[in-house]
Amino acid sequence: MEEQIKIIRDILEKTRRNVADNGKYFIMWGWLTLAASIGQYGLIYFEMFEWIGIMWAVLMTSGAIVSGVIAKKSYTKSGVIGYADHTIGSLWMACGLSIFLLAFVGMPLGAISIQALNPIIMTIIWIGVFVTSRVIAWKPLQWSAFLWLAGAFICMMIHWHYHGLITAVILIPGYLIPGYAMRKKFKSSVNV
């Protein structure tokens, strides 16, 4: 009976060390969205409004494809899909599809105003970051999540021309810094 207890204990210890490198997604999406947000402000500044939607569509579609490739490569390399990874992946897929529907269908149809779009997207990102922080049980990410909620509130107060700049500012502590910190945490856990 001791042998069986030892097997269960050893396996649970091994599977617990399977922490996914979620940081790489935050870093990739962080830089991509930072480029798009600054690009949006630039296009508004030069009054090239018709390019805003196209730029976002190209960058976000590229991000979704790269995310899919990274996820597939990660699975092939590790050979395992944990429940936490599965939940986080499903959550961000739902967030991404919701944002896509609002930005690329709702807004062109006139159902969503351009002034309301960014606060709604930031609210969706807040849900994604907050739930991710709970699933991976990492408190610093929870504080980053609240910045998205604050960003959504700020964007409700100011003209949409400046929403790109607000997003760019929130992205650094709300996505990039936690992304690099998560990556560092992952690397140190792998080297244990």
Binding site: E3, Q4, I7, I8, D10, I11, L12, K14, T15, N18, S78, G79, V80, I81, G82, Y83, D85, H86
Partner: peptide, 27 residues
């Protein structure tokens, strides 16, 4: 109850899915 099968079932109870090589290394 067999040790290898117990290890396999314990692994699979903790994850959504795992491939052959991962289970081989863990067991």
């Amino acid at each position: 109850h067999a040790p290898v099968r117990l290890a396999i079932v314990t692994i699979l109870s903790q994850v959504v899915e795992a491939d052959f090589n991962y289970i081989k290394d863990a067991t």
